[in-house]
Every structure is written in structure tokens, then in C-alpha cells.
Amino acid sequence: MELTAALFNRRTSNGPFLPGPVSREHQHLLMSVAAAAPSHFNSQPWRFVLVEDPQTIRDVADLSGRSMTELIERGVFFERYRRYFRFTAQEMNERRDGIFIDHLPKPLRPFTRQVFSDAGLKLMRQLGVPARLGEENRRLVAGSPLLLAALLDKAEYRPGELSGFYSVFGLGAAVGNIWNTVGSLGLGIQFISTPMELPENWRAMQEIFKVPPHLELMAVYRLGHLPEAETRPAIDWSSRHRKKISQYVFREDCTQPEQD
């Protein structure tokens, strides 16, 4: 029952962390639960880098902030992910997927549904929103006491072959174990995704972590202890809805939806 409760209470932390360090004991526990994940032939293709060095964290934060500013300024982020945005509670309740944009800077709130259109993007540029979001993103990462880089061993990770799928599947299970454990330790976790959206910035991220040729950098996360009071970013969303069983489960074959 404790495990089930942890799964249902899993969260992604969009706000700042407390400045105190994550103990080595907790870091090693997270690595141990990652290693408990299943992998093809017990190949354990995952590799992780734990980062506490302030300069490295600042370098990742600067890159993340610049990436966010560029993505918003160019409209890349909204164009790429617009289909996931929901703007009313009714829409969210009906679709039960995507993210509900329920928190915007005050000047943008009257234009909630239009804020991600071309006209809305122009207004955001005029209001300096891209730079503001970039700086906010930089501060969030810079204020994180621990970064976690997830990599795959290329001896196992061979895209285009079944080993590529097996390796990604295994890493996903390992990271899932981490994600479902952090809450019980009073920690939060968030995917540092913006540099991945721009190939040149992702190459710069690999240089920061000094990734050798035999490893592939797959993802970077920030971790830290959660404050009691939540502080939300300028543009934020909720994503707690999940589809009903009848929307994603079938019985016997793909023609018969399972009943809720």
C-alpha cells in the first residue's frame, strides 16, 4: 500500500528547492532504486552523473535559461507542443490529458486562449516575457542543490535495433523508480528539458558533463528538498488528470474498450 500511495502521489516540481544539500545517503538510495529496475538480459545499460559542483550547476542553469528564452522568442516551444495545451477546466475534464494552463502573468490573463497564437507571441515579446521566463528558468536550475544526468551505454543503446528500444525502456524504468521515490524523501524532481529542444545547446550540455564517446546523454534532472509553501513560475500549469480506463485499455483485442 505504501508503494501504491507513492505512485499515485508522484509529482513534478516546477518551483524552487530549498538550498540545503541532498544527503549522500539519499543520493545513493536513489541510485539503488534505479538499479532495481528491469533491463534486457539484466544489461543495466544506464549510467548516471550526480552533480553538486556549483560551477557546473551554474553552467547548466545558464544554458537552460538561454534555451528557454530562445524557444519562447522564436515560438518553437508553442508551435511544437500547442496540441497539449488546455485552457479551461471543462476541456481538461473532457480530454483528461495534456496540461491545463492555469497560471499566467497578469497582463496575459485576458488573452489566455490566444496567448500561444502568433498574435499572443508578439504580445509576449513586447512584454519581455521570453527573457523573463528564461531568467526564471535559469534561477530555478541554479538554485538546485543536485543535478542528475542520465546516460546510456552505446554498447547496448543502438538506435534502429531492438537493443535501442530495450535500453530506452530500461532507462525509463530506472528513472521511474527514482521519480517515485523522491517524494518519500521530501525531495522534488524536474526534467531540465529546454536544452534538448535545440541541438546545438544539447551538444553544449554534453560538453558540460564531459560525456565520452561510448555514452549517450539522454536526460538531465534537477533535484532538491521542497519548501513548505509552493512558489509557482510566471507561466505554469497543472497536469494531474489521467484518462479513464475506458480511454486507454482494451479487453481481449483493440476493438473492445475496457469498462471503467
Rank of each mutant, 00 (worst) to 15 (best):
D236C: 03
Q247L: 06
D236Q: 02
F250H: 15
M196P: 00
D236V: 01
D260L: 10
G188A: 10
H214V: 04
F41A: 12
T181F: 00
H40N: 11
A229V: 15
L215I: 08
L30R: 01
E216R: 15
T12K: 07
V211Q: 07
E94G: 02
P257E: 12
A219C: 14
V22D: 09
A173I: 01
G143S: 07
F85C: 04
V175N: 07
L140M: 14
D118A: 14
E216A: 15
T231D: 06
V129L: 14
L71A: 14
T194Y: 15
L146V: 10
P38K: 11
C254R: 12
G15S: 12
F17N: 10
R86S: 04
E79W: 01
D53P: 00
E25Y: 00
A61Q: 06
P233L: 01
L3H: 07
L171K: 09
M196L: 12
G134Y: 08
K122S: 12
E207M: 09
G98S: 09
R66D: 09
S32M: 06
D253I: 00
Y248Q: 00
H241D: 09
L146I: 06
G164M: 07
R222E: 09
Q190H: 15
L226S: 08
Q44F: 01
R83P: 00
R138Y: 11
L127I: 08
D236W: 14
